[in-house]
Write a protein that binds this DNA or RNA. Structure first.
Length: 721
DNA sequence: CATAGCCGCCTTTTT
DNA sequence: GGCGGCTATG
């Protein structure tokens, strides 16, 4: 085990009071937190009084294991903000005004609820798109604006409508005893703000608070942290403003920048040495991030003696890019590189497909780090919906999903009648099912069908307070789900396998020593509800399996916190990275976040970094000529001159030559200039990035679309106003 | 009431 | 290019 450096050691051994660890990439930040947990325990703090918050469940699990290896840290609360909130809400459900068996609603459940809410407000879903509404609601919740507060300040037309949707949406969730991701944070923030009894208890329990990736906390999380530490101020925040990549989700970089103002007596430790990457890699990262204006300047100090290796290659299209990468990886493997040490990063999930195809062709093992995908499968969602109803009979979304799955001859008309009966009598739909015999509008035969389902669920419920796996298995067999899949023949085989994988996961969860430990040190047994609530908080990064010999494919966002010897970052093109959606408001902040995202990707690489772009890329079935990302010039202004013609296939050589031709003088385009484009028509210049012959103009066209165009190909003509 | 087939929608990143 | 939802048909 490497020795701690002076500054690392300073952070680790800080005893009481606020501490800010400003850490660059690869500076051993997470290690400092783990050592600090060990130090606190050594100096007499009970593990039970420590709370460490990480960004993903995976990170929490790793930190838990490392902390264990230092000695008995059992009982320390190490989890994500969301998991912590679930715990708090269950423990203090009465004070929070919710029932402890609540369901955590994922985005598809949310979307069902918001659609209903929009309907109730008599708005049409075309001008009030559910996704827009959900986004807006999420932003409000992250800012801790509840429906009542928002209603009071909603003056304009849109806010007014949004406020109504928001109220109805919250109403629906609360009737169903469901909480969405943002509710978990908001409810806890309000609970500890308003309820002094709970705040005191939590302050008493969590005497030391450690928060990793503090740059990505949103206002709700910030508030929770503030109240959790309010009596003792033993808060240790660690993060890197240059790695803030979740602004779009409400993360506020100001939280870390203002830490010293929030906690005036804070000790600040800077970790600027980088133990991860070779010098040439770090220099590129430095060059790039220096273009961000909105930052505190810091330089990465390399400590590795090996220089590292950086390659920037242009390919003709995404298929060639993928094939060349596959070949390079095969070469690396021949040289003895383990596939575990190779990763591919991309901006959007859809870009993984071409790489996958190339890897299959070339016989390269890979895994896509996309954890939530498994839980989105129909058969998995069906079984989970049954289990959710057992634990939370108010969960109408899940109940409606399963009531006729497998089909039992219960249709929409019948369900409408049941729903009407439920609302007239002020009971839940589940209870209305139990009284199906009293619903006179429904035929005797259908009444009987409803009663059968209700009876079945009631029978299942008797086992629902125990372990997860046995009840999951029982429900799968007795509900008819298994028969339904078996009847599908070969098509259903895959589904059957998935279900048994889920049941395996459940039984693994059941056997796990409980992560929760009571004050007196005894393990708290987990049950079905714990399982359901845990998997609903699963994230992509959580699915990353470090034990198998294969290349990891993931988005740049999922790459946060990881490191690899060899890193490939693909699709360095305008519109992809930076992503076109990040430019819609013409907001410089969004471009800076894209730059930070690339920065995060670069700084994952330990010894070799391969960056690539393609001249043509097919997106959503459309092949478009693409422009190398402006970020490539920022890494290295001469990057294009250094391009090897060999990296293009023969047929592309000719095209390459016009690429190389950068003698002509570029014409200046000012923001606001009216221009005409051959196919897009009239538009106005929003931005001009001067790169000599490779200058990029961003034009907002009258069609409403904004495009980034490479000046020398775009054939733009200026139009007088 | 079930099923198949079609249309139209979106599609950045995710706890 | 993929999925969800709607409609028409049996």
């Amino acid at each position: 085990m490497r020795q701690l450096t002076d500054s690392q050691s300073q952070a680790v051994h800080h005893k009481d009071g606020p501490l800010l660890v400003l850490a660059g990439p690869g500076s051993g930040k997470t290690r400092v937190i783990t050592h600090r947990i060990a130090f606190l325990i050594e100096s007499g703090v009970r593990p039970y009084n420590i709370c460490a918050i990480t960004f993903t469940n995976k990170a929490a699990e790793e930190m838990r294991q490392r902390a264990y290896s230092f000695g008995s840290s059992a009982g320390a609360q190490i989890s994500t903000f969301h998991s912590l909130c679930v715990r708090i809400l269950r423990q203090y459900s009465t004070q929070a005004g919710i029932k402890p068996g609540f369901t955590v609603y994922d985005d598809s459940d949310q979307s069902k609820c918001v659609k209903e809410a929009i309907k109730k407000c008599e708005l049409d879903t075309s001008s009030f798109a559910p996704s827009k509404m959900l986004n807006a609601i999420s932003t409000l919740k992250n800012k801790l604006v509840d429906p009542e507060t928002f209603k009071a300040e909603a003056y304009d037309f849109f806010s007014n409508k949004l406020s109504k949707v928001y109220s109805h949406y919250q109403q629906l969730l609360s009737e169903r005893n469901g909480l969405d991701f943002d509710d978990l944070l908001m409810k806890v923030a309000f609970l500890i703000r308003d309820c002094t009894e709970v705040r005191d208890e939590l302050n008493n329990r969590y005497k030391y608070l450690l928060i990793d990736e503090y740059q990505d906390t949103n206002h709700a999380q910030y508030t929770i942290a503030k109240y959790l530490a309010s009596s003792h101020n033993n808060i240790c925040a660690a993060g890197d403003p240059d790695q803030s990549i979740y602004r779009w989700r409400g993360a506020d970089i100001k939280n870390i920048l203002a830490f010293e103002t929030d906690y005036p007596n804070a000790m600040v430790v800077k970790l600027e040495e980088n133990f991860r990457s070779g010098e040439s890699i770090l220099r590129k990262a430095d060059n790039l991030i220096a273009y961000n204006k909105n930052r505190k300047v810091k330089v990465l100090v390399p400590t590795k003696t090996e220089p590292g290796f950086v390659d920037v290659s242009g390919y003709s299209d995404e298929a060639q890019e993928a094939q060349m990468i596959a070949e390079q990886i095969r070469n690396l493997a021949l040289k003895g590189v383990s596939l575990k040490d190779v990763a591919i990063f991309y901006r959007v999930n859809a870009m993984s497909r071409v790489i996958e195809e190339a890897f299959v062709r070339n016989n390269i093992n890979y895994q896509i780090v996309r954890g939530v995908e498994f839980y989105r499968r129909k058969e998995i969602r069906d079984l989970l919906a049954y289990l959710k109803v057992l634990v939370n009979p108010d969960d109408e979304v899940s109940l409606l999903r399963i009531i006729n799955t497998p089909s039992r001859g219960i249709g929409k008309v019948t369900l409408d009648k049941v729903k009407y009966f439920a609302s007239v009598n002020g009971i839940s739909m589940f209870d209305a099912l139990g009284k199906a015999g009293q619903i006179s509008t429904i035929s005797k035969g259908t009444q009987a069908k409803l009663a059968v389902v209700h009876n079945m669920l009631v029978q299942f419920q008797k086992d629902a307070s125990g372990k997860a796996a046995p009840i999951a298995e029982r429900v799968f067999k007795e509900s008819g789900l298994e028969k339904m899949l078996q009847a599908e023949g070969i098509e259903g085989e895959n589904s059957l396998e998935n279900v048994s994988e889920l049941i395996n996961a459940a039984s693994k969860f059941d056997q796990q020593p409980a992560a929760t430990v009571s004050e007196h040190g005894e393990l708290v047994e987990t049950n079905l509800l714990d399982f359901l609530q845990q998997i609903s908080l699963f994230s992509d990064a959580d699915a990353y399996d470090t034990s198998t010999e294969c290349v990891a494919l993931m988005t740049l966002h999922a790459a946060k916190g990881l490191e690899f010897d060899n890193v490939f970052i693909i699709g360095l093109e305008e519109g992809i990275l930076p992503h076109e959606r990040a430019n819609i408001s013409g907001d410089e902040d969004e471009l800076e976040e894209e730059r930070r995202l690339f920065f995060v990707g670069i700084t994952r690489a330990k010894s070799a970094l391969y960056i690539s772009f393609a001249k043509y890329r097919t997106i959503r079935g459309q092949t478009l000529r693409s422009i190398p990302s402006q970020f490539l010039y920022e890494l290295d202004r001469d990057f294009e001159k250094k391009q090897k013609p060999e990296s293009y296939s023969d047929s592309q050589l000719e095209e390459y030559s016009d690429f190389e031709d950068q003698q002509e003088e570029s014409e200046e385009f000012k923001t606001g200039q009216l221009v005409r484009h051959g196919s897009f028509g009239l538009g106005r210049v929003k931005k001009f990035v001067d790169m000599g012959a490779n200058s990029i103009v961003q034009v907002q066209f009258n069609t409403g679309k904004t495009k980034s165009l490479m000046l020398k190909y775009a054939n733009l003509t200026k139009v007088d106003n």
